[in-house]
Measured scan of single mutants.
Amino acid sequence: HMTFVALYDYVASGETDLSFKKGERLQIVNNTEGDWWLAHSLTTGRTGYIPSNYVAPSD
């Protein structure tokens, strides 16, 4: 899985979304859904959809 880092805080707007904090590391499970990607937080262990423009590839 690709690892990304959150650029901003995001508060989930629905049950399927994943809240995260700036700097949180996320594994992308599925990024074929356009602007919303299914991600797994390496910080909280939770999985949900995130806005793709809130994250950047982590080196």
Rank of each mutant, 00 (worst) to 15 (best):
M2H: 13
K21G: 06
N53L: 10
N30Y: 08
K21W: 05
W37K: 04
D59T: 14
D35S: 11
V11A: 10
N31W: 14
K21L: 10
S41L: 03
L42K: 05
S58L: 15
A39W: 01
G34V: 12
L18I: 12
L7G: 03
I50C: 02
L18D: 01
M2S: 11
A39I: 04
L42A: 06
E24K: 00
S19L: 06
A6Y: 00
Y54P: 02
L26P: 00
S41H: 13
P51F: 04
Y54D: 02
S13W: 08
R25L: 15
L42H: 06
Q27E: 12
N30S: 14
V11Q: 12
S58E: 15
Y49Q: 05
L42M: 10
F4T: 05
S58G: 10
T32A: 12
Y10D: 00
S41Q: 05
A6D: 00
E24F: 01
G14K: 14
D35H: 13
G45A: 05
H1M: 12
N30Q: 10
V11Y: 09
R25I: 15
S52A: 14
Y54K: 06
N30A: 11
S52T: 06
Y8T: 06
W37G: 00
F4M: 12
G45Q: 07
T16P: 05
W37S: 03
L26W: 02
N30I: 09
G48M: 02
Q27Y: 14
F4D: 00
N30D: 15
T3R: 07
Q27L: 15
T43Y: 08
M2C: 15
H1N: 14
I28T: 03
L7Q: 06
L38R: 03
V55Q: 02
N31A: 14
S19N: 05
W37I: 08
T32L: 12
H1Q: 13
W37V: 08
P57I: 10
D9Y: 03
D35M: 10
W37F: 06
G14Y: 09
S19G: 08
R46M: 13
E33V: 11
F20Y: 01
T3V: 15
E24N: 02
E15M: 09
L26K: 00
D35I: 09
T43P: 03
H1E: 13
F4L: 08
F20R: 00
E33H: 14
T16C: 15
D17G: 13
T32E: 12
V5S: 04
H1I: 12
T44K: 02
G23I: 00
Y49F: 11
W36T: 06
G45P: 01
T47L: 08
L26I: 07
G23C: 06
K21E: 08
W36A: 04
L26Y: 01
G14I: 09
I28Y: 02
S13Y: 10
L42W: 06
Y49R: 09
Y49L: 13
P51H: 05
A39C: 06
L26G: 00
A12E: 04
T32N: 09
G14V: 10
F20A: 02
P51W: 04
D9T: 06
H40I: 15
W36F: 08
G45I: 01
D59C: 13
L26C: 01
H1P: 12
S13K: 14
S19F: 05
W36L: 07
K21Y: 07
G14N: 13
M2V: 13
V29Q: 07
P57V: 10
K22D: 01
T32I: 11
I50F: 03
V5A: 03
K22G: 03
V5D: 05
Y10G: 01
S41T: 01
G14L: 10
P57F: 09
P57T: 08
N30V: 10
D9W: 01
L38Y: 11
Y10L: 03
Y8E: 09
G23T: 02
S41G: 02
A6S: 06
A6I: 02
I28K: 05
H1A: 13
D9Q: 03
F4Y: 15
T32Y: 09
Y10R: 05
L38V: 07
P51I: 02
V29C: 14
G34D: 12
N31C: 14
P51D: 04
K21T: 09
D35G: 10
T43E: 13
F20C: 05
D59I: 13
P51L: 04
A6L: 03
L18G: 02
S58D: 14
K22W: 03
F20D: 00
K21H: 11
P51A: 02
R25T: 12
Y8Q: 10
D17L: 09
D9C: 04
D59R: 09
G23Y: 04
L7E: 05
A39T: 02
N53S: 15
Q27V: 15
E15I: 10
D17W: 07
F20V: 08
G14W: 08
T32C: 13
L18N: 02
G45D: 06
V29R: 07
I28G: 03
E24I: 00
A6T: 07
E33S: 14
F20Q: 00
S13Q: 15
E15F: 08
E24G: 01
G23H: 05
D9I: 01
Y10M: 03
